[in-house]
Design a protein around this nucleic acid. Structure first.
Lengths: 102, 102
DNA sequence: CAAACGTATTGACAACCATCGATGCATGTC
DNA sequence: GACATGCATCGATGGTTGTCAATACGTTTG
C-alpha cells in the first residue's frame, strides 16, 4: 500500500510550478540540433538564420522551428535586420537554468 | 538558394556526438516529475522509492519509469537495500551538465 | 514453503515532437 | 509594379513520450 519505510523526506525546495517552468527551459535545450544552434550563436556572438541549414544539414523549415522554440524559451533573442533574422544568446536565461541545477 | 549573407560563422565548439550526449542528459532532466524527484533526492541526501508516489501524486509504475530514466542518464545512483530501492544524486554528472552550458 | 510487500516490466493509449515539402508573407531589388 | 529572396506557417507523417492498470519478479516474513 506504498507505506513509508523510513524517516520522512526533507521538504522539497522546488515547487510544482517552478518544476514546470524549469522543465520547459530544459526541454528547449534538450535537442542536438538546438544545442548546436545555441553553441554556434554563443561562439559567434551573433549569427543570422541563413547559415544554419547548411551548417547543420537540416531543412530551412526545421531550423526555423527550432529557432522559434529557443526564442520562445528565452534562450535566444531574435532581431530582424532587413530580410535577415539575427540571433544572440540570452545569457541571463542560461545562467538561470544552470543556477537551478546547482 | 540559402546563400550566405554575412561573414562566415565561428567554428562550432560542440560536435554532433557531444550534442547528442548532452541532449540525452538534458532530456532526462526536462520533465517536471523528474526534476522534483532529483530535487527531493538532492535535498534529502538519499531517498527510497516508496515515498515518491505519495509525494508526487503519480502512480508507482510512473515513478519507477522516471527513476529508471534518471539512473540511465547517470543523474541518480540506485542502491538496493533489502526490498527497498534507495537513490542518491550523482553530482559529477550534474556538474558536467552545468559546465557544458556555461 | 507460502503469503505479503516493494519495485520493475508489459501493454495500451493519447499526446507530443522532429522532420520536410509546399506555400504564404514580408522585404529588398530591378 | 514585378520579381527574387529570406523566413514563417501549414499539413502530413513517423517516431517518441508520459501515464496507468495489470502483471511479473525478487525479497522478507510468518
Amino acid at each position: 500500500m506504498t507505506e513509508s519505510c523510513c524517516a520522512p523526506l526533507s521538504d522539497a525546495t522546488l515547487s510544482d510550478d517552478e518544476a514546470v517552468l524549469l522543465a520547459g527551459w530544459l526541454k528547449a535545450l534538450a535537442d542536438p540540433v538546438r544545442l548546436r544552434l545555441v553553441n554556434i550563436v554563443a561562439t559567434s556572438g551573433e549569427a543570422c538564420a541563413c547559415d544554419f541549414p547548411a551548417a547543420l544539414g537540416k531543412s530551412q523549415p526545421t531550423i526555423s522551428h527550432h529557432l522559434s522554440q529557443l526564442v520562445k524559451a528565452g534562450i535566444l533573442d531574435r532581431e530582424q535586420r532587413g530580410k535577415w533574422a539575427w540571433f544572440r544568446l540570452n545569457n541571463d536565461r542560461l545562467k538561470e537554468v544552470t543556477a537551478a541545477l546547482s
